[in-house]
Design a protein around this nucleic acid. Structure first.
Lengths: 227, 227
DNA sequence: CGACTGTCGAGTGTCGACAGTTTGAAATTT
DNA sequence: AAATTTCAAACTGTCGACACTCGACAGTCG
């Protein structure tokens, strides 16, 4: 939230599209719509008390985020995942973060290390007293930092897109896949590897970390799939 | 209503959004719009002989492909690149292809090798008798194959997005950056490295190949920027 | 002379409506 | 009873219209 010189909050009359997109996102993450369900524009427009135009644009936005899919003349549907797609998402995530951490090894500044350690503290705090959603969010934030520190903003953008899908998947499963405090702890080796300045060690730590996460999520997802 | 102020051909009543998106893409690649130029919905709608709704959707599509950017209440503008963004694009491309080739080393099938060699032949053919656009297209197709062979479809999707931007940049420069036949030849070492089944060799070949391309493109772009 | 204000045109955000298509179920046939 | 056809309701794609916002320019006041 930016402020003006006088300290007023900037008035950003967030247009309808973004508001609707946020509401839809929330509803989707809460599981209000079944996977694969059809979203009727007119119905949503009535629900939100607006016309179909902004609903349509919001839906396209969620489509670009991979949470909805559209079929010509049939409309929008809640995105469904299969295990293979989930594997791909985590594999791509590994691809991105490995590239980031690799370019990072050897030029990690003190500031960066402080930021990462601070994020680790935050993760441990929400592991104790936060909600599941917060825990996921802080976990994502840690990995996002790695991407940001790579200096490649285009890479960060792809990471963000991936995150939408990961969030969606994880909340689709309906429960966290591990003890949040232990999850936080498993980020420690990554920082340590970065400190050694050894690219190989960094890659190994990340490989392991993401590999474990992928395995757990996919496993839980496969269990869910049996219904 | 056959001709328009900008001279676009008229379109049929099918799939308006995609047709408009294609025509806009073509116009953008041809350089009909200056970088940073404002695209007025109403004007385009008149030009195409349709209403603003499909134009708007097509513009959003191009926005998601990184060819346009939008500002609230101000509309769509032709995306501008700076050298740093171009560096990021090529860096991310290296990230993707390195991941692909790495997972490919050691499980390259005969079919894959045949396909790659076939593509190389195609590249050499269009280097002799094709247009610049074709040459770029076949070059992209080779690298896309590498991504496809990784088996990660999500990765291919990101690669495709990146390609839109690369195409746009390259054609923005207005000329090819190297002798097309030599460009084709530089793909040979990649296939050779894959044949050795050695991940390190594959990575090295790719690093070199993309590094050279990046350097050339960015260099030419910087020259252009001086105006 | 400089800064502020009012006005005007251009353009986006949103709306309600219409036409053609898809869907699901009733109606009919086998 | 199962399969097929028919048909109406629901829905999407597209359109034209209106209100509000933004930027430019000229005019006003100190």
């Amino acid at each position: 939230m930016t402020t003006t010189t006088r300290g007023f909050a900037t008035i950003q009359q967030r247009d309808l599209v973004n508001q609707i997109a946020d509401m839809l996102t929330e509803a989707l993450l809460k599981g209000d719509f079944a996977p694969g369900a059809h979203l009727a524009e007119a119905q949503l427009a009535r629900d939100f008390g607006v016309s179909r135009a902004p609903v349509r644009e919001a839906a396209r936005l969620l489509e670009s985020r991979g949470m909805l899919v559209s079929q010509p003349r049939r409309g929008f549907f809640v995105r469904t995942f299969n295990a293979a797609e989930l594997v791909d998402v985590y594999d791509l995530r590994l691809c991105l973060e490995r590239h980031a951490i690799r370019s990072l090894a050897g030029r990690l500044t003190g500031e960066m290390e402080t930021a990462l350690n601070g994020q680790l503290d935050t993760m441990r705090r929400v592991a104790r007293e936060g909600t599941a959603v917060q825990q996921i969010e802080e976990d994502v934030a840690f990995h996002r930092m790695l991407c940001e520190f790579s200096g490649n903003q285009r890479l960060v953008r792809v990471f963000d897109e991936l995150c939408h899908e990961m969030r969606f998947c994880i909340l689709l499963i309906g429960q966290l896949y591990d003890d949040p405090m232990r999850v936080a702890d498993t980020h420690e080796p990554i920082i340590e590897a970065l400190r050694t300045q050894d690219p190989e060690a960094c890659e190994a730590a990340l490989n392991y970390h993401i590999g474990v996460a992928q395995q757990r999520v996919v496993e839980m997802f496969r269990e869910r799939e049996q219904e």
